[in-house]
């Protein structure tokens, strides 16, 4: 049954744990062959795959880092622009407020001046009419006085 396993099992040596024979070099050759076979079937392709992936990961990492840096740069730039714009707008608002204030004051001053002028004018008019009225009153009073004096004198 196991005849093929007994490749001419003639005069079998005694055996033993440390029975060294041609098994040793043949096993060495076998292991060396296995090394070459495994190298071409396993170590090389798998190593290539792993290292390609490592390369891919490191380059994409570098790219991502670059993109992140770019984004951060842009963010800083935009922030700066934003600050500028805010400053400008504040300045503009301040200017506009000043302008409004100035216009308001001007208008107020104008209106006040106008009001003053018309008040002055009406005061003068009132004054003039008053003096005129007083003058008329004086003459009339004198006339009346003279008349009263005349009548008194005439009645006597």
């Amino acid at each position: 049954m196991h005849s093929w396993l007994l490749l001419a099992e003639a005069a079998a040596p005694k055996g033993g744990l440390f029975d060294l024979d041609a098994t040793l070099p043949l096993m060495a050759v076998q292991v060396v062959l296995l090394t070459f076979i495994l190298n071409s079937l396993f170590f090389r392709p798998v190593g290539k795959a792993v290292e390609e992936r490592e390369g891919y990961i490191s380059t994409s990492r570098a790219q991502a880092k670059e993109k992140l840096a770019q984004a951060e740069r842009l963010e800083a730039e935009l922030k700066l622009q934003l600050v500028d714009a805010r400053k400008q707008s504040q300045a503009l608002i301040f200017q506009a407020e000043q302008e409004v204030e100035r216009l308001f004051r001007e208008a107020l001053a104008l209106a006040q001046a106008e009001a003053n002028a018309s008040r002055e004018k009406s005061r003068l008019e009132v004054e003039a009419q008053k003096t005129k009225a007083f003058a008329g009153l004086d003459t009339q009073a004198e006339k009346l006085g003279a008349l009263i004096v005349e009548r008194l004198l005439a009645a006597k």
């Binding site: 396993l5 490749l7 099992e9 055996g15 029975d19 024979d21 098994t23 043949l26």
Partner: peptide, 12 residues
């Protein structure tokens, strides 16, 4: 051991 004999050599 299961001895194989190849020529003069013994193999396990």
């Amino acid at each position: 051991h299961l001895y194989w004999r190849i020529g003069n050599l013994n193999l396990h």
